[in-house]
Design a protein around this nucleic acid. Structure first.
Length: 525
DNA sequence: TTAGGGTTAG
């Protein structure tokens, strides 16, 4: 009997200690002190249980140390479904769907435990927007076979999956199968209807749903904006009795998207005056974009001051928005100073400053920044090269532009897109090398669009070249048979060349093109 | 573990 008592006592102590050990490990992890947690873990192997292992692994994932997490996981004497789910969500958060997939296969083959609802929710959400999404219906089948009921988590994730696959029947089916729906699946249903363009279905869902939250409102607002129904979005926004920062940002962004920068800025002012909602990073970036679009440097200055006053830490996105705003509003030097203050400059930040110099016609400085960017180890993308070729075109650096354009393909393995060709045509055109521009268009791997033809036509206008101008006009005609700019450029060329007497010929051409004299398109400078 | 908003070109 005493022996049994001793055993029970020991057992109690050891259980207690294990609980305490795990608590301490978690406290260390919570304070970001993984080393101490690990030390404690290694010092007391007799006290550790599966929970200690799981805590430590999850701690490594939280601190972005996936390698250690995987290493510990491999060493585990025994794993439960929680261990697997920690691995899956760790890799999902690390944006590594490949590993999620392999981990899932592994679990299926060797796991001691079966997957549960959480397993599927995590896996499905990490398969969204990528090729793995095609596995989602199979996962759906698998979880039904395993008898896992569709709770709001798995169900909502699955609904997202079917939206991603444009399978709206699947979406509705899952929605009806979810037991004990809370507001989330309703929100996802609205999202799905909006994504497929069924705005009235979305509205009907909104009207009949039992409860709504901020997500509901902003999903509806964004849906209307995506479907080009800004007025409806505004109507819904105005109906909100209590507006949160997300819906404010969304509606401001809506106006920005439609080019109504003035209204966007007015709304921002209204937001500040409302006193109830404070702007955040997202709002500021959006508003700065509006300032840039409207060349409203004074408002931009005020927003800048507002950001500084608000005490938000200036992250790279916000700083890039500032760089872009100042560059577009004409103050490239301030833009550069702010750019220099960015500690870790990413590709977008570099593109902004290079684009800024390009627009200011400072081709050498654009190239200089490009070289600095390369030295800092950032790889250029297609946008970098659009900016660079544009810069060379506006700075008269024809050969440099050619070299850069070619290096994009040969050195950086990027594919030249329509925009690059348009910039190159513009570059040759400005320099008066119209034959080269024509040759380039002929050799393009795809049919030129209206921007390419427009650049060419503009150049022909600039250099008063009738024959090539007519080729350009014809090119545009095949795409848009009554572009107004064609008329104004051609009549300029004919005028320059003194072929005014041929005005009846032009009239014929005009009839043929059914062009009307309207405001000239802005792509012809 | 599920559902909303941000930066570069066009």
């Amino acid at each position: 009997m005493p022996a049994l008592r001793t055993f029970a006592l020991c057992h109690q102590i050891s259980t207690l200690s294990t609980v305490n050990l795990n608590k301490t490990i978690n406290t260390f992890i919570g304070h970001g002190n993984l080393e101490e947690a690990r030390k404690l873990f290694e010092q007391s192997p007799h006290l550790t249980n599966i929970v200690s292992w799981n805590s430590l692994i999850s701690g490594y994932f939280k601190h972005n140390n996936t390698q250690q997490a995987q290493y510990l996981f491999d060493e585990m004497p025994q794993r439960d479904v929680i261990s697997w789910n920690i691995m899956l969500s760790g890799y999902r958060n690390a944006n590594n769907p490949d590993k999620v997939y392999r981990c899932l296969l592994h679990m299926n083959r060797y796991g001691d435990d079966r997957p549960n609802g959480l397993t599927f929710a995590v896996v499905i959400s990490s398969f969204l927007h990528i090729d793995f999404k095609h596995l989602i219906p199979q996962l759906h089948g698998l979880l039904l076979r395993l008898g896992i009921s569709l709770n709001v988590f798995v169900g909502s994730a699955l609904m997202r999956g079917y939206i991603d696959l444009d399978d709206y029947k699947g979406l509705a089916r899952v929605f009806y199968e979810i037991v004990d729906k809370d507001v989330t699946p309703w929100n996802v249903l609205i999202l799905g209807y909006m994504k497929s363009g069924f705005t009235s279905e979305a509205q009907r869902t909104f009207d009949i749903m039992p409860r709504r939250n901020f997500f509901t409102w902003s999903t509806l607002i964004n849906g209307y904006i995506e479907n080009q129904k800004l007025n409806e979005a505004r109507y819904v926004f105005d109906k909100m009795s209590e507006k949160d920062v997300v819906s404010w940002t969304a509606i401001i962004r809506g106006y920005v998207q439609y080019g109504d920068f003035m209204k966007a800025l007015k709304l921002f002012k209204l937001m500040l005056n409302s006193g109830s909602t404070r702007p955040n990073h997202f709002t500021f970036s959006t508003v700065l974009y509006a300032c840039a679009g409207h060349s409203a440097v004074l408002v931009g200055n005020q927003v800048h001051a507002c950001i500084l006053k608000s005490g938000f830490p200036l992250d790279v996105v916000l700083l890039t928005s500032l760089v872009d705003m100042y560059a577009k509003c004409g103050d490239i030097e301030v833009a550069f100073c702010i750019f220099e203050s960015i500690h870790v400059k990413n590709l977008v930040a570099w593109n902004s400053i290079i684009g800024g110099y390009a627009r200011h016609g400072l081709a050498e400085r654009a190239i200089q920044e490009f070289e600095r960017m390369l030295k800092s180890g950032i790889r250029p993308d297609v946008i970098t090269f659009i900016n660079l070729v544009y810069a060379c075109g506006h700075g008269g650096l024809v050969e440099e532009g050619e070299r850069i354009f070619n290096s994009m393909v040969t050195e950086y393995g990027l594919k030249a897109e329509m925009e690059h060709y348009a910039c190159m045509v513009d570059l040759y055109g400005r320099a008066g090398q119209l034959e080269k521009a024509e040759k380039l268009i002929e050799g393009m791997p795809f049919k030129p669009d209206v921007v390419v033809w427009g650049a060419f036509l503009g150049a022909c206008g600039l250099h008063s070249c009738i024959e090539l101008g007519e080729i350009a006009a014809n090119g545009i005609y095949t795409l848009e048979n009554d572009h107004p700019a064609v008329y104004s450029v051609l009549s300029k060329i004919y005028g320059d060349k003194g072929v005014c007497s041929d005005i009846t010929g032009l009239d014929k051409l005009m009839k043929k093109w059914r062009a009307r004299k309207q405001k000239a398109g802005s792509w012809v400078e």
